[in-house]
Amino acid sequence: MNQLDQLEARSVYIFREAYANFKNLCMLWSIGKDSTVLLWLARKAFFGHVPFPLVHIDTHYKIPAMIEYRNKLALEFNLNLIYGENTEALANKLTFPDGNVDRLTCCKNLKADALKNTLSGEWPRFKLNHSTGEFDLDTNREAYTGVIVGARADEEGSRSKERYFSPRNKESSWDVGDQPPEFWNQYKTDFAPGTHVRIHPLLDWTELNIWEYIEREKIPTVDLYYNQGEGKRFRSLGCWPCTHSVDSDSKNVAEIIEELKTGKFANIAERSGRAQDKEDGGGLETLRREGYM
């Protein structure tokens, strides 16, 4: 087994443990490269199927190509796609692009709060109707108790402290200093009512591993990751007002792998193009404690 095989096997094991132990399981799908690799690994684990809903938090500020790609893949892979949003904040224009709040508050409103209330079922969820291609109001309002997330330990500091199965308390918050032990391959699959568990199958993967796997498996990715001839590409994807591209000539997956191997980005954080991180003092700890993925 090479390193990618080992990473894949561990991720698949984690997926299957999650599926066996959590009745109300879902997977967060941000449409980025990591969560798309995550989706692929789910299909590996369940032999082509994805037996739980994919939840996307729609900020309505995602780069439009991302939403297009999301809907296309959902129809093609026959995915149970659900989205949630902070309708109120959007209606009252409590967003950074509207000029009414700072970037971090915007993230909290459109992502962390929307996520928390979509997972708990308190705010409406919208479900893709495969026969019409439209989204209908989801009648299921049950809280998700197991949430699969594509966080990687090497991505930024606070994520390196996650367990494979990390508990979140009733307020969705995360007690970093007091986490359960993980002996061997036994994870936290028991949880008190009202709490939930975040599950991290990609914890051990690096940015390079992700691209190597995309290349090996020929996983479809959104074009924004590649240089379209202007010498720029996105390394990490988010909302357009807060996401910047990096200088790069890489036009395809193989060239990105070569570029990463040169060490060009060794001292530049992967999320350096994500402006909200800087306002959180260079990390996402504050947001993540409140439930941000």
Binding site: D154, S158, G283, E285
Partner: peptide
Amino acid sequence: LKDEQSQGITIDAARVF
């Protein structure tokens, strides 16, 4: 390194390379 990564919050089984 940890401060940079973690904003001074006690790091937990973190990784250095």
